[in-house]
Design a binder for these strands. Sequence first.
DNA 1: CTTCAAGAATCTGAGATGGTACA
DNA 2: CTGTACCATCTCAGATTCTTGAA
Length: 889
Amino acid sequence: MSSSDDDMPLASKPKTNGVNGASHAPISEAHISAKTDAALDKQLPSNGDVVPAVPNLEQDVSMEDAQHATTNGVKRKASSARPDFTEAESSDDEPLSKKQKTSRPSHAIESDSDDEPLAAKSNGRVRTISAADIGEEEDSDTPLTKKLVDQKQDIMKAAEKTAQVIKKEKAKEITKPQKKPAAKKVKKEESSDDEPLSKKAPPASKTKKVKAEAPAPTKGKGKGKAVKKEETEEPEDDEAEGETNWWDNPMKGDGENKWDTLQHSGVVFPPPYEPLPKNVKMKYDGVPVTLHPDAEEVAGFFGSMLNSTHNVENPTFQKNFFNDFKEILKKTGGAKGPNGDKIAVKDFSKCDFKPIFEYYDAQREAKRNLPKEEKKRLKVEKDEIEAPYMFCLWDGKKQKVGNFRVEPPGLFRGRGEHPKTGHVKARVQPEQITINIGKEATVPPPPEGHRWKEVKHDRTGTWLAMWQENINGNFKYVMLAANSDVKGKSDFEKFEKARRLKGHIADIRKSYRQELKDDLMVNRQRATAMYLIDTLALRAGNEKGDDEAETVGCCSLKYEHITLREPNIVEFDFLGKDSIRFHEEYPVDKQIFKNLRLFKKAPKKEGDDIFDRLTTTSLNKHLSNQMPGLTAKVFRTYNASWTFAQLLKEIKPGGTVAERVKAYNDANRRVAIICNHKRTVGASHAQSMEKMSEKIKGVKYQAWRVKQMMIDIDSKIKKKKGAEFFELPDDIDQEWILEHQAFLIEEQTNKITKKFEKDNEKLKAEGQKEMKQKELTERLGAVKELEQKFKKENKSKKVEAEGKSPSIDSLQKKLDALETRVANMSIQAEDKESNKEVALGTSKINYIDPRLTVVFSKKFDVPMEKFFSKTLREKFQWAIDSTKEDWDF
DNA sequence: CTTCAAGAATCTGAGATGGTACA
DNA sequence: CTGTACCATCTCAGATTCTTGAA
């Protein structure tokens, strides 16, 4: 490929310690030592002075904006307006010939507005369900509940059709990887014939044929052939594989439409609200108050999460909740005291939700303590009800649905300082839900007495149902699970795109380095941003509204988020996605430093955008010119996977499985750190760490004792092995030993006592006589012996060999076992510590090409299960099945 | 065999991206 | 025609809940 330094901006980041707050030198030597630097220095004086080499730029920045900031600004949405720091740029920036290439990539979509997209789009806001809607009309609670139960049955009946079809699919497809020949084929035909939908729709197999033929002119050939074979039934040849696994023919990506036929059972609604028992009430000013069920439900939202102090003690959360709560109180007749008198609920601090909390907590507890038989029964019951919704038929193939459950109402838990956190998230009504389904399919019936908002047949979408949520007006989609074909394919494409970037990265880097000195502000900002995205793995950073948490990414970095320190240190401190803090110090390329200083130059001040001439859209537009399909996020994928690949290559073969797994996890961790994937460290972490090291010391102590026993057996061994061998480990001293011995004795005592008590209970339960106290004393004799032994050892400084016929040999074996145990435990402990606030999962699931793991697993002979859980293996089945050992990212 | 924490699975909020209508 | 605001859809994220397996 390219020069090696071009290849590794991230891998050379010694960023491993980032989490611990130590500063590090993240920027690749390549960047820092780039010879361009010298040249740059000539053009751009290194000190406070203002980039004389780029007069235009200077002028641009310093002068204009005082005059034009207000007058010349383009109209912008108030909430996200960027102040103009320069004169409207369009005139001097854009005429550039560079711009010539605005032509869209050839694959630009020909607007195929297919079915009725416009109608759908023109729908106004979803009607939000007001309290009145939920309340007065449907007041009759019990009937409502019953109604819903009945509905459920109806739904199930309707869903049955789909379910039947799906079941059949299951029968034949569940075994897909195995090559079940002829019989399967036949069955398929049958099933499609007698499936209930056959009248309305082309049966599955037929559909497939259609699909296979349509794209045939291009690339559908393999598939078409396979289908044909299937039709003429060709058992063993195993077209089934070609048919069932898209990765056997991944190139057949057809364009616009995601499916030809689609049937599913819709969504599952959460159960209706069950009012609290009469004796459970929230208190206001110490008085239990009675609420309308709708208000009570809202009170319950808050009450049931009292243990989540993080939310419940957040003032914004309280305020938003309480406003909504008062609102619904107003609509439902307020709160009533014990005598039926009205009570004005005005003060949040006088509300006591504890009774509600205790009730729900007791419920949870009760549920937890249910006999496991009962638990199992309930689970089976639930599974049965949900079975029809769990899968859909996508082009005739059974696929798992991801989130078929409509989100239940509750309090919105916005992360960070979300202005809307705590607001009531309303119950979603069928009337808000749009169903997307094949024209040929049976539309799942809405709950009795309800209707869907709309039913559409949008083949360009991958979603099955959709609604709009009431807090932010966002859309929620029901889509397929991660192990489905669509998701898998798109995952595959994501990584392929990242791999393609490999071939362009050298050019891209060269180009943006050049542009770091560009005369045009836009270009210079863009290049600087690209550097940050490439080097620090920042996200693109779209603008956000006032009604969201104030988090940023690259393009939305603000003045106060970076601090510059001579000669070239940049300190980043900002909240990124999910309000996770990004706080790092980096030495950067000289030119970057200069640019950032320029972008922060007065009159810019706190709150102003650093990249005021840059938007994610323009950035991505530029990127896609450099490589079709390239966007900012691809860099994260690329750098994560590429880095991981390099790290894996550094791992030497050999060692135990545990060591290899650790090496893998270490690499994983490096990537997670690059991506700034964090988790909150649990309160119990330190304690559990302590416990662990105690345990390790315990085993070390055991090992030491065994060594002493060797001396006991063979006094000459001391010379043979060397005195050092028999010394106490560094972290163990006499004091500790005494403590530990006491601990061991106590532990033994407890254990024996407990056992004794239990045995007695058992005897009692069986109606037999309990053992006497004397028995216990007798049993505790063992402890006494132990105590004596320790005493003796402490005194004599010798350890008598234990066990029957102890020999040096047997002791050595024992010692070996103990030492491997120590080693394993130490590895575990290290792992845990370095892991405490890094979340490995996100990068493993989303950024690291799974094929790397597959190759590693094969080369190092470590079972996949060590790296991928069951779901992950399903999600990455395409990689597991199709990756050869010599594959490289 | 019970307990409890680690790890897996689920949930749903937060971003990225690209299209479209419109000024 | 150009740049935005808004919409729509999909990926990615940490917290929460559930399960499991080791002590």
